[in-house]
Design a protein around this nucleic acid. Structure first.
Lengths: 185, 185
DNA sequence: TATACTATTGACTGATTAGTCAGTTTTTCT
DNA sequence: AGAAAAACTGACTAATCAGTCAATAGTATA
């Protein structure tokens, strides 16, 4: 693993444990086993590091999710696939999950930034389709997207807090129906 | 306004604008027009100040909401009243809203703390009743509570971002149905 | 009035931190 | 090989910040 990647991985772990401000850059470098200077060689400021990490996570979530959506699927099947992939990804990548949670309520976060990402664009397209076809409620697509995202976050947080895994298919479906019913007409 | 209250109000504004760590205690004192020392007289540490603010907000939300729920109401009416009160409260008290959002994703936050509050207890009782009576989905009450809370947060954030107010009753109902449908059987 | 307690001040401090920099090593290209 | 560029080091610094403290003002009580 090159030093830049080492820094991102270590920073994500430390940030998710101690928060952005609770983690000194010197500590990130030390635990990544690189020099202090090299951190600022790759990321001129701490802010740049944090933003780079955000895109790193979204990219990986995109790669993980999108391959799973197959062409002939119905709208509900596609949404289910994306929902399940997001839940799984967040359960499996605890540090990414915690990092994003913190990032989105921090002063670093801007909606415009998120909109640029192809993952969000893909989701919005699907939702727009659902609204046009009359399958979804007449609610702004962005609000539906945000609502489902926050429900996914809540679900993951709940499962983790109770040390649960998604091994019960029937229960998993019941969880998904919560999200689906909130947007379906 | 006494100095203790002045400090809480000023801190809430600064925290909501710049975050917990982006706001120095010295600045809180300065903008509250009190001395630096008096802050630590009332709140021995910054953490104590932050936790005191959390309870201050929850208390006020409780007072605002609970009076509006009337005795003979159906379950759906009660939930609607609480939902609308929470949305209104958060729209009207922007600094409280931003503060709570940050608090809940910060290292200060513990679920146990929240559980102690009578506002949360009231909501959980209502949800339990809904599950027992078969009106709600068979999902853990705490998950339902968290899910609705996060939907309220999302809704408020969306309305604010688009400079909208809840003057259209029909639209308001449509927003509520999103939340209701996700928990109703 | 005297005593005790609480409220208040603001200068100060020890610790921490983001970011710098002068110099060294490694890699890349001709 | 040799020059140029990129990767890398770690000691250093200027600034910041939470919390202290000794002293003063105000208030309540006996």
């Amino acid at each position: 693993m090159d030093k830049r990647t080492k820094l991102i991985v270590t920073a994500k772990r430390l940030f998710s444990e101690h928060g952005f401000y609770g983690t000194a850059t010197a500590r990130i470098a030390r635990e990544a086993e690189v020099s202090n200077g090299i951190l600022f060689h790759y990321f001129p400021t701490k802010d740049v590091l944090i933003k780079a990490m955000f895109f790193d996570v979204k990219d990986r979530l995109f790669d993980y999710s999108v391959g799973q959506v197959y062409k002939g699927a119905t709208l509900k099947e596609s949404i289910y696939t994306l929902w399940l992939a997001a839940v799984e990804f967040n359960l499996e990548n605890a540090n990414d999950f915690e990092f994003i949670r913190q990032f989105e309520t921090s002063p670093f976060y801007r909606t415009e930034t998120e909109l640029e990402h192809r993952y969000v664009q893909l989701c919005l397209e699907l939702i727009d389709k659902g609204i046009d076809e009359g399958q979804f409620k007449q609610i702004p697509a962005m609000l539906i997207f945000k609502s489902i995202s926050s429900q996914i976050e809540t679900t993951v947080r709940f499962l983790k807090m109770n040390n649960m895994v998604l091994d019960d298919v029937e229960f998993t479906h019941r969880l998904f129906e919560m999200a689906w019913d909130s947007l379906a007409k």
